[in-house]
Design a protein around this nucleic acid. Structure first.
Lengths: 184, 184
DNA sequence: TGCCATATACCGTCTGGCCGGTACAGTACC
DNA sequence: GGTACTGTACCGGCCAGACGGTATATGGCA
């Protein structure tokens, strides 16, 4: 990996602002300060604030997608392979539930709901993937919903259980995907 | 039900703004316009904007709680009664996935993350409830996460399937809660 | 090798608009 | 005449975006 470009540094800083101070505090000035340059500099790389958020969303999507593909490779073959990869991705510290990337979603919804569109597109793709190799699409769908729930809870700052319980839950879900090759 | 108070009308209008224009557009002026009065009028009822959001959050909590209790009464006795009530609540058109109430959560997170606190408190209570009568707390927890996922997806404007599939999913989940009285 | 031209990357300043909040002046009903 | 409520006018701060400028690198060319 080459050293992060200025563009990347700005996105990092913007994510950090959302995480630490909330979406409302995400200003060009603040992002600039975090990235170590001036607002003018930020506006050189991103023409508008919406553009910056687009960049954040793109980062979110790429990061999650890359992660999911990596986990897919690591998972053994067999039914529910994509679903298993999704579970691993969700609980990964760099996954969608991570503070580091999730700000993008929040920012996009808060500022301009049109900016969610690329997420929706990728989202459809993910769902399609998971359905493709799941003997019970319903079970896979349920678990997919739950993974979203987990991610969103983290983003919103709602805690439903401590970390120990989370690991148990992860294992429980993975067991479900082993034990029920052809449920229904 | 007595006719809605001005206070209620303001909250309704604020919710509508969040729903239709996004959190960023939620201003005192806009909420006032929606409620049919001036900003001064709004500020008479809510001393600050945070105060208004607190009101929205309170509304969200009360509405969901009331709904859940009502469904609990309607559900037949037996295991997973609270979990079943939660599923019904989630899919209810006035439930947490409803456009009409969900804006509160978004607004609170976006504007001032401290305002989420009352939600977290209620949230803990709901989780406790569900665990209390679930033979498999893991299954109940999974379904709870999925219900959150569904609600949040709606709030964010992400669609995972059409309405027909949603109803199938609801039925699938309710069947799970019948078929597995003592899973694990 | 020296000179100009252009592109890239960035800074600092300014401005116009928006928005939260204040102050105060009604109005209407009891 | 007081209380509950609503409107109007305004202030001060913040912020997106525009703009003009600067420094450095690159490349052509004589």
């Amino acid at each position: 990996m080459s050293p992060p470009t200025t563009r990347d540094k700005i996105i990092d800083a913007a994510m950090a602002v959302v995480r630490e101070q909330g979406v409302a505090k995400l200003t060009l000035d603040e992002a600039a300060k975090g990235a170590g340059l001036s607002k003018g500099g930020v506006l050189y790389h991103f023409k508008t604030k919406d553009d910056l958020i687009r960049g954040m969303v793109e980062r979110l999507i790429n990061q999650c997608d890359k992660l999911q593909l990596a986990y897919y490779d690591k998972e053994p073959e067999g039914p529910y392979r994509w679903a298993r990869a999704m579970v691993q991705t969700t609980f990964d510290p760099n996954g969608p539930a991570s503070d580091k990337v999730s700000g993008a979603l929040l920012a996009s919804v808060a500022v301009n709901s049109e900016l969610v569109a690329p997420i929706q597109a990728k989202y459809d793709e993910w769902i399609e993937r998971i359905r493709s190799d799941s003997p019970s699409p319903m079970l896979a769908g349920l678990i997919g919903m739950a993974m979203d729930g987990y991610s969103f809870e983290r983003i919103m700052g709602l805690k439903l259980c401590d970390e120990e319980d989370e690991m148990k839950m992860k294992q429980y879900i993975l067991d479900l995907l082993k034990a029920e090759p052809t449920h229904e």
